[in-house]
Design a protein around this nucleic acid. Structure first.
Lengths: 340, 340
DNA sequence: CTGTTAGCGCATTCAA
DNA sequence: TTGAATGCGCTAACAG
């Protein structure tokens, strides 16, 4: 059984004063005689008094709690995001209430309601992949609860966000491939309907354009279906692919598999760049070049934006497209680059 | 500004009844005339009324919230643990309040206070590595807040826990190495003062004893210092090491490095087994054999124990040593096993 | 069947 | 300087 915690009234009774006096003594507000003040404070300490934030929440209509919705926990990207968020919220004295959507819109909607019901002071959300409706987010906005979108965003909702600069991240990767001499560049796209998928694809296209390389539809693969490996195999056997840029590191590993099967050496005959800088990337053989999205910073900045908006609701719309870092490892040739 | 949510009183006023009546109508308790009941319910729905859990918490002295303390977020193990916990708690209608200790005792102590102050209904904790004092956990116990220890535990605190069966996990790994013919078995120990370090070491010893292999002190390495790689190199050059069991996958990778440097082929001349089944293990070359600890299950069971204790404080002490799974991959020879 | 009263723990009036 | 009263939103005991 949870023990009753000692309350302001308990110590008031013990000292034959009223709760109001104790409250004042403890909070410094109002005037309390020095003698009583010291008595009260020392007794409070002795009894291990700790104010009940629940009561204060009810009174102040705020909870010092921030709600977080993420698609899932087990991807390294989200772990880092979470760590970044936690580092700033805990610093600022806020608690973190966490929900997962499992990438399901239904669960995401449920989570927003849970967090709204919990009266969180603000909400951070990475919206799930297949979102096409945003009423639940609008509801959050309408309730007056500050909302910040992280990693993924939608133009439907007019609220601060922090995303990764996918366009330039992809551009820098493909640009590098082109600079090192690749001519036939495979791209494996991400899930449909995701802004990140679109933006990385645009970055890919832009880099090709810069290098005056014709865009070949047959080198652009959707990752959705079951037959991805076959499609990759088909491409690599028929189109002399010498460079590949994948939407994710995991998709890049699919390329590794096919290359190994077809005895195409990486990076000698094929340069590969993934996306996300999963820790695996630096352990796999050959180590995978990739684009680092700085998820920790993303989380931290998102949390800062949220705190800003909580503390000043009229603040202007803060948005950020976070710079990425191209990490070149063994999966890319680079001697041709040095020649340039 | 956070908008005032509509309350039971609002709808009471609108309908010219008292809040009590509304409360009864909405909760089904007590008698309310069918007519009023329907009126109230329909208006509540129309106005989007949602009960304020804060108020209920104050009244009931419980928050439907569970506090969680983990060392950090970014190791895959903890992500899975977290996912396992979340799956159970969300199912049961509990919220998750999360704190990190960053493996620092000070932060862990602060976190317990934060969660205690938040009046969580129960607490799940993975105690940090260097813990030598447990007053803060005793404080949690004394407050009457159910506590369950996960992954790491201490005999100082008499409360339910779920840990991995490190002894048998290690035993099965080393037993396998012995069965496949390894004679000189290196072991890299984990951090000092950790029960897991001790138990895995005991499993190692027991397996050697079973196979009547003499324990050689010089083949047992501490992982603490900076000079680990040198110590591994020294061992491998001087003692014809043909099998290695590391406290973690990452430590196993250190062995990979030295082996590669010394041109000792894995698994032909050296079989290696790590611990934890990090996702990296199945991507690295050669893929690493390891011991899977079932972190998701661990989290889930821990959460179940906690819920049990919350719902029935007098329940007996539930403890579990979770079975591990030996995962054999390319880093171990196995043909000799098949001969047996 | 329904209204009144009281109280969870606290801070903030207003009076004294 | 201190106490008394009020209310945050809700439920429960009691009284009609």
């Amino acid at each position: 059984m949870k023990k009753k915690r000692i309350s302001i009234t308990d110590i008031a009774n013990a000292l034959h004063v009223t709760p109001s006096t104790v409250s004042r003594a403890l909070n410094g507000g109002g005037k309390v005689s020095e003698k009583k003040r010291l008595e009260i404070i020392s007794l409070a300490k002795e009894l291990g008094y700790r104010p009940n934030p629940i009561a204060k929440s009810l009174l102040e209509n705020r909870t010092h709690t921030i709600g977080l919705i993420i698609p899932e926990f087990t991807h390294h990207f989200y772990s880092c995001l979470l760590a970044g968020i936690e580092s700033v919220t805990s610093q600022a004295g806020y608690q973190l209430l966490i929900c997962t959507s499992n990438e399901h819109q239904m669960q995401e909607i449920k989570s927003t309601h849970t967090l709204l019901d919990a009266r969180v002071d603000g909400m951070l959300a990475t919206i799930s992949k297949m979102n096409d409706k945003f009423e639940h987010l609008q509801e959050v906005m309408d309730s007056g609860t500050p909302l910040v979108l992280v990693d993924r965003f939608t133009e439907e909702i007019d609220t601060p966000y922090v995303v990764s600069d996918d366009f330039n991240g992809a551009f820098s990767a493909v640009d590098y491939l082109c600079q090192t001499g690749c001519k036939n560049l495979l791209h494996i796209k991400g899930p449909e309907n995701l802004s990140t998928t679109f933006n990385r694809f645009m970055g890919y296209k832009e880099a090709l354009r810069k290098h005056k390389i014709e865009l070949k539809e047959e080198l652009i693969l959707e990752s959705g279906g079951k037959d991805l490996v076959e499609k990759i195999r088909f491409c690599m056997t028929n189109f002399q692919v010498d460079g590949a840029f994948a939407y994710s590191d995991y998709l890049a590993f699919e390329i590794y598999k096919v290359a190994s099967e077809l005895k195409i050496p990486i990076p000698e005959k094929l340069s590969v760049i993934g996306y996300a800088d999963e820790p695996i990337s630096s352990f796999i053989h050959p180590t995978l070049s990739t684009v680092n999205q700085q998820p920790f910073e993303m989380g931290a900045i998102g949390a800062i934006y949220l705190l800003n908006k909580i503390n000043n609701p009229d603040i202007g719309l803060e948005v950020k497209s976070l710079e990425t870092k191209l990490v070149i490892r063994q999966s890319c040739l680079n001697h041709r680059l040095q020649v340039l």
